[in-house]
Amino acid sequence: MTDARAAITEVVDNWVIWRDAGLWDELLCAWHEGGRMHTSWFRGPAPEFVERCRTAFDTGVTVHHTLGGTWTKLHGTRAIAQSKVTISQRVMIHNVLCDVVGIGRFYDFFEARDGNWRLVSRQPIYEKDRLDSVDGRQYPDMDHELLAAYPAGCRHMLYAQKCNGVPVLTDLPELRGPIVEKLYSAGHTWLENGPLAFH
């Protein structure tokens, strides 16, 4: 059990380094074949997610992930890992340079295949976020009606993405509510050797 938890935590730790540093071949190795990634802007196969990250990185987009602790529940060759994460990005919003910072968790479906623990699916949970002007003397003239229409746990992040031409998803799990409860239920099903039943 201890070895399994250590192997899972290593994948979680490595993911953020590989993702933020642009180590795309290594990042792809975090998933098993057929693995999926869900974010606020993407829902689909891991290889496509990695390729889109590569494209954004090459155009100058930078995203930073900082991890906290990881809690892992194991059942045979399957596991659910939850890791605290802070996601930050520097973006232009209405001609003002801003930092958007979100706090939440990675909710990860893991499986051991041929003795190797890798991701089968990753779904962030969005708990809260904020937006700050880099130069405190300026602040973007935001559409507050649009901002309020987004989920509270990630509304500033979605607003920033929308302003920069990134499609956004809004049916996202937050700290509370039916969507995150559906995610937890899917995790329970996964641990009981059932199908992956979220998105």
Rank of each mutant, 00 (worst) to 15 (best):
A81G: 14
A81V: 15
A81P: 12
Q82C: 06
S83Q: 13
S83C: 11
K84G: 13
K84R: 12
K84N: 14
K84S: 10
V85H: 14
V85S: 11
T86C: 15
I87P: 15
I87H: 10
I87Q: 15
I87T: 12
S88I: 03
S88A: 04
S88Y: 05
R90Y: 09
R90K: 13
R90M: 09
R90S: 13
V91F: 03
V91L: 06
M92Q: 05
I93N: 11
I93H: 05
V96Q: 00
L97S: 05
L97M: 08
L97T: 02
L97P: 06
C98S: 05
C98F: 03
D99I: 06
V100F: 09
V100W: 10
V100R: 14
V100S: 06
V101G: 10
V101M: 15
I103P: 13
G104H: 15
G104Y: 12
G104D: 15
F106L: 07
F106S: 06
Y107K: 08
D108Q: 08
D108G: 09
F109P: 14
F109W: 12
F110S: 09
E111Y: 02
A112F: 08
R113A: 06
D114Q: 10
D114N: 11
D114P: 10
D114S: 13
W117G: 12
R118K: 12
R118P: 11
R122L: 08
R122N: 08
R122D: 01
Q123N: 10
I125W: 14
Y126A: 01
Y126F: 13
Y126H: 09
E127N: 14
K128M: 11
D129C: 00
L131V: 05
D132M: 09
D132I: 08
D132C: 05
S133E: 04
S133L: 05
S133W: 04
V134G: 04
D135H: 01
G136Y: 01
G136C: 04
R137E: 04
R137I: 00
Q138I: 04
Y139R: 12
Y139M: 07
M142Y: 12
D143A: 02
D143L: 03
D143E: 07
D143I: 01
H144R: 05
H144N: 01
E145I: 04
E145Y: 04
E145A: 04
L146V: 03
L146K: 01
L147S: 03
L147G: 01
A148Y: 07
Y150C: 01
A152C: 07
A152P: 14
C154D: 13
R155W: 04
M157P: 08
L158S: 00
Y159F: 05
Y159R: 00
Y159Q: 03
A160C: 05
Q161L: 13
K162T: 02
K162C: 03
K162V: 02
